[in-house]
């Protein structure tokens, strides 16, 4: 399916989603409460079949925290990028997609580890790389470590 078709499909599922045709991929920004429905529909729909989540990235846009999902279909070879943002920096919560794509289980733990985003309905929400006693979330832009990060 081409980008115009995908756009129409997304707007059918989530009316009012913010869609940008980026240089490379079609990028859709959705509200946190719509993400899981959209992701599930995009995977299940016989015309889209986004069955392969090839990259899940945690992001800190300074005013908001969020996740970027890069999706492709092994059958149709089309791409879509989903973005979800939350402005709550003290206790951000987003829906987990690991019931849709199992690879998200580890990647979401990584995002939790570095950005402190809690994923609802994740079976095992713990830090994956850092110690449990680690304070703060290192990949956030406002993370301060006076000993190891040298500001020039």
């Amino acid at each position: 399916m081409d980008n115009a078709g995908l756009k129409e499909k997304v707007l059918q599922i989530v009316p009012g989603a913010e869609i940008i045709e980026d240089k490379q991929y079609l990028t859709v920004t959705v509200a946190p409460n719509k993400l899981h429905t959209l992701a599930e529909k995009l995977k299940e729909d016989a015309e889209t079949l986004f069955d392969y989540l090839f990259c899940l990235t945690g992001m800190d846009w300074t005013d908001s925290l969020g996740v970027v999902y890069h999706l492709t279909s092994t059958k149709y070879n089309h791409y879509i990028v989903l973005k979800v943002k939350t402005t709550n920096r003290t206790a951000p919560v987003l829906d987990s997609v690991c019931d849709i794509w199992k690879t998200a289980e580890f990647h979401e733990r990584e995002v939790y580890d570095f950005f402190g985003i809690d994923f609802k309905n994740h079976p095992d929400m713990r830090r994956i790389f850092l110690d449990d006693s680690w304070e703060g979330y290192p990949l956030r832009k406002d993370y301060v470590d006076e000993v190891n990060i040298i500001e020039r």
Binding site: F54, C55, T57, T103, E105, F106, E110
Partner: peptide, 15 residues
């Protein structure tokens, strides 16, 4: 602003 490396081994390990 941000660089993410999608590493194959991390996903392979999860399986």
């Amino acid at each position: 602003y941000r660089v993410k490396f999608r590493s194959p081994n991390f996903s392979n390990l999860s399986a």
